[in-house]
């Protein structure tokens, strides 16, 4: 049921995305065509591909469709609110990875400080975007 309902929408998006992709490609790789026959061929090709790989592509598209808001929000928090903690964490990482720390040293505590800060900053923002 759900598949049937969402199929048309996915198809539309599919077409949009392919046209967007082709426009992107044509932006980077400009090609000059002798107008009429080439253009008439291209859409036909695309249509054929679509019909062949329709099912697979639909599933792929639908699965990759939702994008988690969390990573972007957390990234922003890391850069703005928690810059100080991140600085200390990076310092520790460099030190330990270079082998300059005392034996058995790890950066867990520094990492937890970063996490604590980022969680506090990001939690309300993420939950605002969730249903």
């Amino acid at each position: 049921m759900a598949m049937n309902n969402q199929a048309p929408a996915a198809l539309v998006e599919n077409q949009e995305s392919t046209s967007l992709f082709s426009s992107l490609v044509s932006f980077f790789v400009p090609t000059a065509h002798a107008e009429a026959p080439e253009e008439s061929e291209e859409p036909a090709e695309e249509g054929g591909e679509d019909s062949e790989e329709k099912d697979e592509e639909e599933e792929e598209e639908e699965e990759e469709e939702p994008e988690d808001p969390a990573p972007a929000i957390r990234e922003e928090c890391e850069q703005k609110t928690c810059a100080e903690h991140v600085h200390h964490f990076k310092h520790c990482q460099e030190k330990v990875e270079a082998g300059n720390g005392f034996p058995g040293e790890d950066c867990v505590e520094e990492f937890f400080h970063v996490l604590h800060c980022v969680d506090q900053c990001a939690a309300p923002k993420i939950f605002k975007k969730l249903a």
Binding site: E65, D68, P69, L130, A131
Partner: peptide, 9 residues
């Protein structure tokens, strides 16, 4: 219900 199934969601 059509809610986008993100990791957080």
């Amino acid at each position: 219900d059509g809610t986008p199934a993100t990791t957080s969601q």
